[in-house]
Amino acid sequence: MNLKSLSPAGPNGWVMVITLVALVLVPPYTVLANEPFFLDLVMRAVILSIAAVSLNLVLGYGGMISFGHAAYLGIGAYCVGIPGYYGIYDGVFQLLLVVAVCGVFALVTGLVCLRTRGVYFIMITLAFAQMVFYAMVSLDEYGGDDGLVIYERSRFPLGGAIGDSITLYYVCLAVLVATLLLVHRIVNSRFGLVIRGTAGNDARLQSLGLPTFRYRLICYVIAGIMCGIAGWLLGNFTLFISPEMMNWIRSGELIFMVVLGGAGSLFGPVLGTGAFITLEEFLSGFTVYWQLYFGIFLVLVVLFGRGGLHGFIEWLFRRRS
């Protein structure tokens, strides 16, 4: 492996490098400017970016429009909350739990969902996510509707802990970078070529002799586990879990972040999440009816913004050169 394949290519590659460098510099800035709230805002964006990047793997590259991706976010967070309820704060144990639970959930639901296409796939992924949502609402032991407070962040062996916000922030950023690297390698690999091909013409790939169902199922499981890890970070960040985290509205927001940033582009979902959270923050400070304006904006983007922010940046630079 040489470094060239990992270096940024084109304007979007540079946008990625500049954004990531800026994200590294956020904590010093918030300390110097004494704006801890800003760190929280960016941290939320980074965590949701990981979820969006994982959704993009199935939605953008694989053409599988999952409307239940927030379920993994919730499951990941509950993997911090429920062990915490029993006094277990071991991060290694929690992460193994995330991988196991999200992996099995994605495998079992994927076996059913991936037999359907188009709008049926959307509805059935939504249905499975709602099942988890209502299961958590009905579990009074773990707070039910009201949720559960987490008293401590995850601990790691050898005295490692993510006690303060800045440490947690850098952990989140590291996970984001690792997720981007992994997705980049996956979509360009032989496996990824099959995944991108199934999005375009699944029947053709089957007639070439590729059992596409298996490939799509594995892709679905990988994305589910990635999003579960984002949920684990979210639980550590909010120190509170509730079924609201896996509400279908959150699944819809994740889809929008991916589409806004550019489905099927590596860094697009991160830009989309950033834009989404910035707008949400800006508009809600501006007017109490912000959701109305937000809704109008969403409609306009879907109608006219093909390729999302990623496509927009490419178009901008192609025009200049």
């Binding site: 360009n188 690999s189 032989r190 099959v194």
Partner: peptide
């Protein structure tokens, strides 16, 4: 890439997740 998919299908063992396909 279209033809590469056909070649891959014939070669089998495509559960390779890391190495870029265009480098095989």
């Amino acid at each position: 890439e279209n033809v590469l998919l056909a070649v891959q299908a014939h070669a089998g063992h495509n559960f390779r997740f890391w190495r870029p396909a265009l480098r095989c």
